[in-house]
Design a protein around this nucleic acid. Structure first.
Lengths: 141, 141
DNA sequence: TACGTTATGTAGCCTTAGCTACACTTTGAC
DNA sequence: GTCAAAGTGTAGCTAAGGCTACATAACGTA
């Protein structure tokens, strides 16, 4: 039985988790847009919607939020593009995703499950934890 | 560079992540209520709110949702109690939380960071992955 | 070039999860 | 027993993230 966290500590943890959830979607969009730009040369709302499994209207609305956050730009009927900041975020997210998947695989999680779980887990992994993951993988290679 | 997931596969993963998020709050509430019932003998809305770092009004509203989900019962001004189903969920959640924290610690993540990150991670760990975690911890003990 | 298909954007609705403000119970101290 | 403080509940607001329905733009092909 571990020691109980103080009221304040626990509240802070939950708060952090809540804010992580609000940025998770933005990260997913940015990562996906980067992916589409690279593999298809363009990122269209309909493609994004299909990949995420949501309606195109939902995608359009969220893209608007991504733009508002300064991560992307878009002109009507002309697709979506990342800003400098968006590209930087996409890179960070991609690296983190790979690291999480690699770690899960190293622990014996089957690839398919690792990829699926990483999708949810990655948004909640702190820098500190990420470093520990990298260290662990290095030591075992 | 891993192989790309098909459109459908990726959509399914995102969908799973989305639904996990909708149950995450319920799990947190149930776990906290169980905790308070055990340590204080009662679970009052204000205590729950303070521990989660939200207003009491928000807590009350979410407690209503927990009740609607059949996980808890409550009578006005008399505190919150778990149903059979709620207790079972609380147990599962507690076990899972401990396992995630223990794993992170075993990988060299400092305790404080492990506890904090686990709060967000635990809701996205599948049964498959959970088993791999347990197996890894056993093999290394 | 005209037209049907596909993509896009917009409007309006729902639920969740947060908040503040206000009203009503309970509880405890006197 | 009274009354103030603390706790509880309710109402009404916001933003996010879903959806469907509908109108308009772009594209490809006959």
């Amino acid at each position: 039985m571990g020691k109980l966290p103080t009221e304040g500590t626990q509240a802070r943890r939950f708060g952090k988790t809540r804010s992580a959830q609000s940025t998770a979607l933005l990260e997913d969009y940015v990562e996906l847009i980067a992916d589409l730009l690279l593999s298809a040369g363009e990122a269209r709302p309909t493609d994004i919607a299909r990949r995420l499994g949501v309606s195109h209207a939902t995608a359009v609305k969220t893209i608007a939020r991504v733009k508002r956050a300064g991560l992307a730009t878009a002109r009507p009927y002309r697709g979506v593009f990342l800003t400098e900041e968006g590209r930087a975020l996409a890179d960070r997210v991609r690296v983190r995703h790979r690291l999480v998947v690699d770690l899960l695989c190293a622990l014996g999680v089957p690839t398919e499950a690792a990829e699926a779980d990483a999708e949810g887990i990655e948004h909640h992994v702190s820098e500190t934890t990420l470093k520990a993951f990298a260290q662990f993988l290095k030591s075992r290679r």
